[in-house]
Simulated scan of single mutants.
Amino acid sequence: MAAMLRAIFLVVTVLLVGCVSNGGNRPVNKNNAVQSYLELSRGYLQQGYAERAINPVNRALELDPDSAEVYGTLGLIYQVQGENLLADQSFKKALSLKSDAADIRNNYGAFLFGEGRLNEAYRQFAVAADNVKYSSRSRAYENMGLVSLNLGRLSQAREHFQKALKLNGNLARARLELATILEEQGKSREAWGHYQIFTRLAGQNEQSLKLGIKLAKANGDNSAAASYTLQLERLYPSSTR
C-alpha cells in the first residue's frame, strides 16, 4: 500500500510574469527562476535528500509567495520529513490559491490516505478525477479504488479500477487489485485476463503469486500454477509452511 502513496511530481503550467534582476546587468525571468528552484527541490526530494529540498523551495516562495505550485511542493517535502501538520497546512494553502490544481489535490489525497483520513482522501481524489484536463486522471481513479478497498466498498473499488484502466491500461496496481476483486466475486476467467496483463507490467510479490496460483488452477492452467508455486516457495518460503 505504501507504493501507492508515492508523490507524483507533475509539470504545472505557470503564466509568465515580470522579470527580476540577478544583481548584474542581465534580467532573470521570475517564472523561470521559480521553476528552476522547484526542479532543484524536487530533485533533492526524489533522491532522498528531503532536508536539502527546503532551501530551494523557500527561495521560490520568496520570488512568488502566491504560487500554488510552490506550496504544493512544500507540502510534499514536509510530508516526507514527517512534519504532518506543516504538510497539511501547505497543501491547504496551495489549494486556496488554485482550487482546480488536480495534481495538488491528488498529492494531498495521498497525504490524507497515509494519515488514515480515508473519506477526506477520497474527496480529494474524486475532485482530481473529475477534472477532464488532468493528465493523470487514471492515477486519481486508481487511488479512489484503493481508498474504496480500505473502506470495504468492493463494488465501488471495482468501478474505479475499471475506469482507471480505461484511461491507462498500463496501471499494474489497478490490474492486480481488479483481478483480486473479480476472483473474490467468482469471476475467475475475467480475473485471469487482468492478472496475465499484470504479470507483463510488473514484478511478482507474495500477494500476486498467491492470486496467480488460485487463478491458474481455476482456469485449468496447471503449468502456470506450478510455476507460480515454485516462485512463491523460492521467494517467500515462510508463506508456504
Rank of each mutant, 00 (worst) to 15 (best):
L235T: 07
S138W: 07
F113S: 05
E183A: 09
G212E: 03
E39W: 09
L74N: 00
E190H: 03
Q207C: 01
L63A: 01
R117G: 01
I213V: 12
Y134I: 02
D221R: 10
L151Q: 14
S148C: 09
A191Y: 04
D64S: 15
S238V: 09
E177W: 01
Q156I: 07
S238T: 15
L61H: 10
R234H: 12
W192L: 11
A50E: 11
A174E: 03
T199F: 03
A110P: 00
S99N: 07
A172E: 02
M1A: 15
E142F: 01
L38A: 02
Y108N: 02
R153V: 10
P65Q: 13
E120V: 11
E206A: 07
E115Q: 14
L154M: 12
G203H: 09
A191C: 08
L167G: 08
A191I: 10
E183H: 05
L165G: 02
L235I: 09
R42F: 04
Y134M: 08
F113V: 07
Y134C: 01
K217Q: 12
G43Y: 04
N32W: 12
S155E: 14
Y228Q: 06
G24H: 09
S135M: 13
A7F: 14
P56I: 00
K210S: 10
A126I: 08
S41R: 02
L38N: 06
V14M: 15
N58K: 03
I104Y: 03
V28P: 00
Q81A: 12
L15K: 15
E184P: 13
H194K: 05
K187Y: 09
K214V: 11
G23Y: 06
N32G: 09
V80L: 12
T240P: 07
Q81I: 07
S41W: 03
N106F: 00
Y134K: 02
D103S: 13
G145A: 03
I54Q: 05
N119Y: 13
K163W: 12
Y228L: 12
L165A: 04
S67I: 01
T240R: 11
Y236T: 02
E83P: 06
E159F: 08
R123E: 10
Y134E: 04
Q81V: 14
R137I: 13
D64N: 15
Y44K: 09
R59P: 13
Q47R: 09
L40Q: 09
G145R: 03
L176T: 02
Y134W: 07
A126Y: 09
K166W: 02
G23N: 08
N29P: 01
L40I: 06
L10A: 11
L61P: 00
R42D: 05
S41H: 05
S208R: 01
G109W: 01
N32T: 08
L61Y: 08
E83F: 13
E69P: 01
N58H: 05
L209G: 03
N219M: 02
K93V: 13
I104R: 00
G220A: 05
I54F: 05
H194A: 06
A224H: 06
G169H: 05
T240M: 07
G18I: 12
Y228I: 06
R173H: 11
L16E: 12
N222W: 07
L232Q: 04
S99D: 10
R189H: 10
L86P: 00
E62A: 15
A216F: 05
L182K: 00
N119R: 14
Y108F: 11
A129W: 11
V17P: 00
L40G: 08
A102Q: 00
E183V: 00
Y195H: 10
